[in-house]
């Protein structure tokens, strides 16, 4: 087959194939380097004391337990709001909205939201939640800022999954005399569980990695609180703590320890997202 090909063409093909392989190889090597480097630097820094204490000025020790707790709290608080809001908006768009114009406006708004840089969310969150609504710098203000940020993610994943609920299910339910709300409750919502779960996983990943939006909304305190108490107080998440320890205190060891934790969590989330995707696909197929 290759016999009739001129030298020039053969050179072009070889060049393009080489460039493609090189680029893909470079991308894969980059990821491998990042994971291995962060793990190699970070895991030796991890210790039981680091993970289970809070920083102490008296003893001059650093502990990241408060930051771990804050991260968990802020994820829970943000999800509690964003999942119903995002899923509800998706239900409206696919089940209720008849006005094409309105749908287009809402979808454009969602796209705009997903393009806004996190530093701008942080700024507006600071002005709106912390100052105007008088929440001060607190985990709740940070969580609410993250709610706005993750709204488009949950909206999109739920919308995708609603589209896969067969129209005939809805028609069948309507045909049996069910009202729209009943149809949504019994037929539509069970069908969008996978979208909500996927949106949930993606949001957790994004919140875990977020820092710029939290610096000025959730702040960087390292105190240990219970869940509801913590929401009223300022607190650093793992990413913010990494930034503060590295940039302001020059504590690179702690930075790498946190980075290694974040890396492991990111890997877990990637795995969870992939597994969930595969599971839902298979279930839909059968």
């Amino acid at each position: 087959m290759r016999r009739g090909i001129s030298k020039k063409r053969r050179a072009y093909i070889a060049l393009m194939r080489a460039l493609m392989g090189l680029s893909a190889g470079l991308t894969a090597a980059l990821v491998l380097f990042l994971v291995v480097y962060v793990m190699a630097k970070g895991i030796p820094e991890l210790s039981w004391d680091l993970l289970t204490t809070k920083p102490s000025y008296l003893r001059g020790t650093i502990g990241i337990l408060p930051d771990i707790l804050n991260t968990v709290y802020i994820i829970i608080a943000a999800l509690v709001f964003v999942l119903p809001l995002g899923a509800g908006a998706a239900v409206y768009l696919t089940e209720y909205a008849r006005n094409k114009r309105l749908v287009a406006v809402i979808e454009y708004a969602a796209e705009t939201l997903s393009g806004i840089p996190s530093i701008i969310y942080g700024l507006v969150g600071m002005l709106f939640f912390c100052s105007l609504l008088n929440m001060q710098t607190s985990l709740l203000a940070g969580a609410l800022t993250l709610v706005i940020m993750n709204l488009p993610t949950v909206l999109r994943t739920t919308q995708e999954s609603l589209k896969t609920v067969p129209q005939s299910y809805r028609e069948g339910a309507f045909g049996l005399g069910a009202g729209r709300w009943r149809v949504i409750r019994t037929v539509v919502l069970p069908g969008c569980v996978d979208g909500i779960v996927t949106g949930c996983i993606l949001s957790i990943g994004r919140i875990l990695g977020e820092s710029a939006a939290l610096l000025f909304t959730a702040g960087f305190a390292h105190a240990i609180h219970g869940f509801f108490q913590a929401l009223e107080h300022s607190g650093a998440t793992l990413t913010v703590a990494l930034y503060v320890y590295v940039k302001e205190a020059g504590e690179f060891g702690v930075g790498f320890a946190i980075a290694a934790i974040l890396m492991v969590l990111t890997l877990i989330i990637q795995l969870a997202a992939a597994l969930a995707g595969r599971y839902f696909k298979r279930r839909r197929g059968s």
């Binding site: 991308t27 894969a28 980059l30 990821v31 491998l32 990042l34 994971v35 480097y37 962060v38 990943g205 875990l208 990695g209 977020e210 820092s211 710029a212 990413t239 990494l242 930034y243 590295v246 690179f252 930075g255 790498f256 980075a259 974040l262 890396m263 990111t266 890997l267 989330i269 990637q270 997202a273 992939a274």
Partner: peptide, 18 residues
């Protein structure tokens, strides 16, 4: 493909640190 989505998931402060 998995490597690329991992790249998207790594927090920006980790990029900054490295």
């Amino acid at each position: 493909g998995a490597a690329v989505s991992m790249l998207a998931g790594i927090p920006s402060v980790v990029y900054g640190l490295v």
